[in-house]
Write a protein that binds this DNA or RNA. Structure first.
Lengths: 331, 331
DNA sequence: TTGTACGCGTTATCAG
DNA sequence: CTGATAACGCGTACAA
């Protein structure tokens, strides 16, 4: 396994075909009519013989766009997020583009590092799947098309957003919960630094209060968007043999953590304690038939994201894209 | 949202600092001692003022390596795979590199498309997380460092492989199963086009036969590596009220599908029917406490992958890396 | 210590 | 229709 062969360049192809590099370039970019059939076939043969592929770096340097996008995802552990990423990746691939993947892990410092990397790479666009507010984000906003998916950043109101109406969804879910449960209800929200988590918590509380079933302060916990954190909150919530008829979580990951704790305590789900989540992780139908949740349309997210990115490239103004959601009540 | 500001280049920084681009370049690459403190501070100030980031495309074109890697993953739906991808991505990021993500979706045509894209992008290395045999794979093998993770491709024996001894693991798991179950056993293997799936099935059958408990042909199904396919196989396996004491699956995804069918049939897991998988998807401890499986060390995969890639870059010869596994018997 | 100039692989312009 | 050449942003050998 010695040193790798240097990749063949357009120059070598030109020499092999006995033509100028300009002609090779023309053949590659299939400028029909601008090159004689004889030359074309000679070049094509040389390309095939040398197994040549145009060097993308040269193309990128010459042109101004490099056909590469960046996706910064806040948790690749979350199957809902990775589904969105994959849907977008596959659409980008369809059009010959590629996607750089970065995981911010819901950590501002890590996100800064990712964004610096993104900036120096001159990507054609950036998809932020749950962004945190941070300086580099503002730097990018001015110079590269960017889209916020699933979570908006209030300090950058002009960056296009794609998501659902989290507050309404939470309120609707709250109504369904009240209809189903007479007993006490607990709330394990996501981090209130996230606009999405805030909207959801706000929706839940507003509706519970409006229906005269306010949730006591000690029955509300703030978790991170992880199973581990959901578990920890459930431990606190369910200590001293305290029990709830329903535990409402800020997202499905939190709900999984809560589920685990309930299982450990021998609670029967959903009879003794029902668990509610948010997102509808695609795995739920296979592994979490006990979970009630709100289905966020991840495929439509991807389609909208691609469409908005196209508009941004054309220089069109783009407002927020609010997509419909569905309640998933598995009972 | 008009046209984006053109990104600032090294030239503008030079002008702003009143020095030549060479000096700016030297500051960036922190060639200590080759530049006077006065110039250094002036340049650093200009960089900060203009919020300049070096254009990676220029760097990549100039140097020969571009610090970008490609990861081709066979199913981003599979949490085990995406965990490996994320572990590698995070290590690459630590060293200022980035990762292009491609999803082959276990589809040869799609993989070809991904690999063409990879080739034209002149990446510094390619991680194949479950590769299929295909022409572009051979083209890449000759010109770019590549690593097979979790599945080797027999026609490319010289490409470094990182994985476990699947056959031994299957045999060991088979022994544990026989010890636990007197009744009949079914097998839902992965696709036999995959060397990994072949090794696992082979290990299971060999051990079951060696212990005089061979599995009947009609109790063996070949699934794809998906929940849907696992489900379909379970439907076939469990028709006519036929029942098994244990169903052994080629990977965890298949097991999830089997689980769903068992649930639908009202079978109690694991009392009536135990389910065995392979990989130990990190979600299992949260969502699938009923699943027995083989833990494949995904974090060690990532470490080994980075290490092997480094060696490849140095031109060292690298053999296969076989890592240890663990049985996870949750009972 | 600093600056000038070349080349990396392309594409596009312009002359022939 | 074809070929020579400038330009893209950067690093570096070489000259000053």
């Amino acid at each position: 396994m010695s040193a790798m062969k240097r990749k063949t360049s357009i120059k070598e192809v030109a020499k092999a075909a006995g033509v100028s590099i300009a002609s090779v370039s023309r053949v590659i970019n299939s400028e029909t009519g601008k090159v004689s059939p004889a030359v074309r076939t000679r070049v094509e043969k040389a390309i095939a013989d040398l197994n040549y592929r145009p060097n993308w770096i040269g193309q990128a340097l010459r042109g101004q766009t490099n056909n590469t996008y960046a996706m910064v995802i806040s948790s690749i552990q979350n199957n809902f997020f990775s589904s969105v990423a994959w849907e977008i990746e596959s659409r980008l691939n369809d059009r010959g583009a590629a996607m750089l993947l970065f995981n911010s892990n819901e950590d501002a410092a890590l996100q800064e590092r990712c964004l610096k990397e993104v900036r120096s790479r001159q990507v054609a666009g950036v998809f932020m799947l749950c962004a945190l507010d941070s300086p580099q984000l503002h730097a990018i906003a001015g110079q590269t098309p960017m889209i916020f998916i699933n979570r908006k950043v209030p300090s950058l109101p002009d960056v296009p957003f794609i998501g659902i109406d989290d507050r309404s969804a939470a309120m609707e879910l709250a109504r369904a919960i009240l209809q189903e449960h007479e007993g006490e209800i607990a709330l394990v929200s996501g981090p209130q630094s996230s606009a999405t988590s805030r909207a959801r918590l706000d929706g839940f509380r507003a509706e519970f209060e409006a229906r005269n079933r306010p949730v006591a302060d000690e029955s509300i916990k703030e978790a991170e968007l992880s199973m581990e954190s959901g578990y920890a909150c459930a431990v606190a919530l369910l200590e001293d043999r305290r029990r709830y008829s329903a535990i409402v979580c800020g997202n499905d990951q939190i709900a999984y953590g809560v589920y685990r704790r309930c299982r450990e305590l021998g609670l029967s789900i959903p009879v003794e304690t029902a668990i509610y989540g948010f997102d509808d992780n695609p795995l739920n139908q296979w592994l979490a038939p006990w979970l009630n949740t709100v289905r966020v349309p991840y495929r439509e997210y991807a389609e909208a994201a691609i469409g908005v990115m196209d508009k941004l490239h054309k220089g069109d103004a783009v407002g927020p894209t609010i997509l419909p959601y569905d309640l998933v009540l598995r009972r």
